[in-house]
Computed example of a mutant assay.
Amino acid sequence: MVNINWDELGFSYMKTPFRYLSHWKNGEWDEGSLTEDNQLHISESSPALHYGQQCFEGLKAYRCKDGSINLFRMDQNAKRFNQSGSRLMMPHLPEEKFMDAIKQVVLANHEYVPPYGTGGTMYIRPLLIGVGDFMGIGAAPEYIFTVFCMPVGLYFKGGLKPTNFLISDYDRAAPVGTGAVKVGGNYAASLLPGTEAKKRSFSDCIYLDPQTHTKIEEVGSANFFGITKDNQFITPTSPSILPSITKYSLLYLAKERLGMEAIEDDVYLNELDKLSEAGACGTAAVITPIGGIQNGEEFHVFHSEEEVGPVTEKLYNELIGIQFGDIEAPKGWITNLTVEK
Rank of each mutant, 00 (worst) to 15 (best):
R80T: 09
Y51W: 08
M90P: 02
D209R: 00
T163Y: 08
I227C: 12
N186A: 09
F81D: 02
E8G: 06
L208Y: 03
G117E: 03
V181M: 08
E340G: 12
Y123A: 13
H300I: 09
Y62P: 05
M150T: 14
I287D: 04
M74S: 14
G32Y: 00
D273L: 14
A284Y: 04
D273R: 15
I167F: 00
L275R: 01
A140I: 07
M122A: 07
V106I: 11
I241P: 00
M260S: 02
C149R: 12
I4L: 11
F299T: 15
D265F: 13
A139H: 14
S238E: 03
L191K: 09
Y170H: 05
A48G: 05
P310D: 05
N223D: 08
H50A: 05
I334A: 10
C205S: 05
I227N: 09
L93N: 07
M74Y: 15
V131G: 05
L191T: 14
G67I: 11
A189L: 13
V131M: 04
H23L: 01
L315V: 05
N26H: 07
E111T: 08
C281W: 04
M74H: 15
G279E: 06
E305F: 06
F98E: 03
G220T: 03
N164I: 15
E95G: 07
M14G: 06
N5G: 01
M90S: 11
I241H: 00
C55V: 10
L269S: 12
G292W: 07
R80F: 04
E256Y: 08
P151N: 08
K341Q: 14
G179F: 01
E305R: 09
S276M: 15
V219Q: 00
L88A: 02
M14N: 10
I290G: 03
A180C: 15
F324P: 10
Q294F: 04
G194F: 00
S33G: 06
I234Y: 06
A78H: 07
F225S: 04
T312P: 07
G32C: 00
W6S: 01
A173P: 00
Y116V: 10
P236S: 06
K157W: 14
E297N: 13
D100G: 03
C149K: 08
T178G: 15
T335R: 10
I216P: 00
N317K: 13
K341G: 14
K182W: 11
L9S: 00
